[in-house]
Design a protein around this nucleic acid. Sequence first.
DNA 1: TCGTTATATTAGAATACTACGATATAAGAA
DNA 2: TTCTTATATCGTAGTATTCTAATATAACGA
Lengths: 105, 105
Amino acid sequence: MTDFAFADSDLQKFEEPANLLKALSHPIRLCIVRGLMRKKKCNVSYMQECLDLPQSTVSQHLQKLRSAGIVTTERSGLEVNYILADRRIEDIVNILFGEEDCRDE
Amino acid sequence: MTDFAFADSDLQKFEEPANLLKALSHPIRLCIVRGLMRKKKCNVSYMQECLDLPQSTVSQHLQKLRSAGIVTTERSGLEVNYILADRRIEDIVNILFGEEDCRDE
DNA sequence: TCGTTATATTAGAATACTACGATATAAGAA
DNA sequence: TTCTTATATCGTAGTATTCTAATATAACGA
């Protein structure tokens, strides 16, 4: 009955990974993460300009990535730089995008 | 301006991977996928019993996995068996759950 | 201090997701 | 055919996401 590893109580074990994936599963956020894999460090207005989206939209996506632990921040003066913070995420994104090593394709 | 690889038109390139992740980012669906990695093939009522959830709930999650291309089906008599259909998904789940090779932990 | 720039937060409407009972379909047995 | 089992779909209430303008905060310079 449980070699499928499906015990009800176990469902809790899947909450955290599911939340991580959920934070990543939006085209804008995926794009941001991919960009950070290439650029290593980036401030908000630069992303905003590249993405051509309202500032609050970009910022809200960044907060979502941050509270999932996917990125972290580093203030320098007026700017806040975002940096990837979870190695697993890079591996996942590489799987999705075919592992080419961060040059322009 | 675009070494971040953030051109607006490019956002479309992220839709498909984002949808794949979205289909995966729910604890029940993650649990099902993980179970299928171990058991290879499984019918609905078995999953339903293990998960202890209403039949329609399980079925709906399965349809979501199926329409994302994550699983495929194979009917045998009254039963419908579900099988993983996307290798990338297994890699992603292994990253999330620490890569132990499908024995009971 | 005041002004300016960069970023974060709030508010609220539109949209999407989730759970689950009720119902429908599909396949085999009698 | 009718009955039964296994699975899928529908209806819908509750909940969560998403977008964006408006507003708030944080840091710097004058």
